[in-house]
């Protein structure tokens, strides 16, 4: 087991290096002169030169990467070309907002998804099952930002919640549950749908296992067979999906934060893209990806731990 953990941790190193190279090269993939593009169409020769200088664009590429990485490892992600502030500061203030949002969305998705999936599996091939699976399909097929817009239209405008958004904290949310609930639903719905489907199919698979027949042969009630014997086994593969969903939410936050004007990393990224503030884009993408890699690492290890008893069968 320890060997697996060490191997799995070591495996993340090339991935992290790859991610950093990809993020670093973003700016160099810009067609034309990045400095010119950052400076804008009508910028003077001098401004462009300054930007080139500041970003170190005249150094050989591997030196640039080396400089960038040694900065990153010390927590220096460069400076915003617009505000001049350190990218790490810009991100730092918003990092937890996005993590919090994604975390709540994960909780919602897990809670609703598990409940729906279990009900569906237990009442398989009934109206309830069909209804849940149809709703899950819709949840899966809806653009989350559209759901957000509809929710705003219904609740914020229709039910008169709008004034509360006027008193937002600088972070953009968190003061009242009404501010939190809509973005969380927006972000979490797709994940809830996926978890519901996954839970259902996992349960149905487990229900056909030999040990479930053994449990029934013992004279246990259906309730105990389902909730004690089947569920515990069925949940193991769902764990992986939960981790993936958390990552999906980090990405999905880009849209959700934009719609609800939440000042998290997603909105920061979108703003930076429109302002061509590439150091911020780089920094935000890097931070979110590294976070995702670590979440996946934890999920994989815990899956392995949970699965140990089954794996060796």
């Amino acid at each position: 087991m320890l060997k697996y953990i060490i191997r799995r941790v070591l495996q993340t190193i090339p991935v992290l290096i790859g991610v950093s190279i990809l993020v670093f090269s973003l700016m160099h993939l810009i067609p034309g002169n990045p400095a010119q593009i950052i400076a804008g169409e009508g910028a003077s020769e001098q401004t462009v030169r300054q930007i080139e200088e500041r970003l170190g664009l005249n150094d050989p590429i591997h030196i640039q990467y080396f400089n960038y990485m040694s900065g990153v490892l010390q927590g220096d992600l460069g400076n915003s070309v617009r505000s001049g502030r350190a990218v790490s500061d810009e991100i730092g203030a918003r990092f937890w907002v996005t993590v919090e949002l994604s975390f709540y969305a994960t909780i919602l998705a897990v809670f609703i998804g598990l409940m729906a999936g279990i009900i569906s599996a237990v009442r398989r091939y009934t109206v309830a099952d069909t209804a849940i699976m149809v709703i899950a399909l819709f949840g899966l097929s809806m653009p989350n930002f559209w759901l957000g817009l509809v929710l705003i239209d219904w609740f914020a405008v229709g039910a008169g919640w709008l004034p509360e958004w006027a008193k937002l904290r600088p972070s953009g949310w968190g003061d009242s549950w009404r501010q939190v609930i809509l973005p969380v639903i927006t972000l979490g719905t797709g994940g809830a749908a996926i978890i519901a489907r996954m839970t259902r199919s996992s349960m149905l698979e487990v229900i056909n296992q030999d040990y479930i027949r053994t449990a029934r042969a013992k004279g246990l009630t259906d309730r105990i067979v389902t909730y004690r014997h089947a569920l515990k086994n069925a949940l193991i593969p769902v764990v992986t999906v939960v981790g993936l969903e958390f990552g999906g939410f980090l990405g999905g936050a880009v849209l959700t934060e934009t719609i609800f004007a939440i000042n998290g990393m997603g909105r920061l990224t979108v703003q930076a893209i429109t302002q061509r503030d590439f150091p911020i884009v780089q920094g935000a993408v890097l931070v979110l990806s590294v976070l995702f890699v670590f979440v996946n690492l934890i999920v994989d290890i815990s899956y392995k731990l949970l699965n140990k008893r089954i794996d060796l069968n």
Binding site: G219, T221, K232
Partner: peptide, 25 residues
Amino acid sequence: QMRGLRGNKISMIFQEPMTSLNPVF
């Protein structure tokens, strides 16, 4: 009534000992 019999009056053992026990208990 059947549950009262199963595992109590009439018990059963199966072919696959490898998969007939629940792995998580």
